[in-house]
Amino acid sequence: MGASFVPITVFTVLWGIVGIVCPFFAPKGPNRGIIQVVLMLTAATCWLFWLCAYMAQMNPLIGPRLDNETLIWMSRTWGNKIA
């Protein structure tokens, strides 16, 4: 329902790499733990935030209410010529 395979995979994999794969390659040293936490939390928060925005729009309950001039402009510039 409304979900598209490509963007979900792309962004999940992207943040997955940052949050799960990258921490393994964090430089050794006293700050390794901090770098890992930073990477994991960054990935988690950014992914969650993206996911919420995506899911909130997946099955819209209302549509945008637009000015007719805007609608004409939309169809001219974003394609789908007026019938």
């Binding site: 309950l61 637009l66 007719n68 394609g79 019938a83």
Partner: peptide, 21 residues
């Protein structure tokens, strides 16, 4: 992800139009 499917006469006669998901 949204586009206009209204025809010209509807667009001209209505000031505000809602797109229907």
């Amino acid at each position: 992800a949204w586009r206009t499917n209204y025809n010209e006469s509807t667009l001209q006669s209505n000031k505000l139009l809602q797109l229907n998901p």
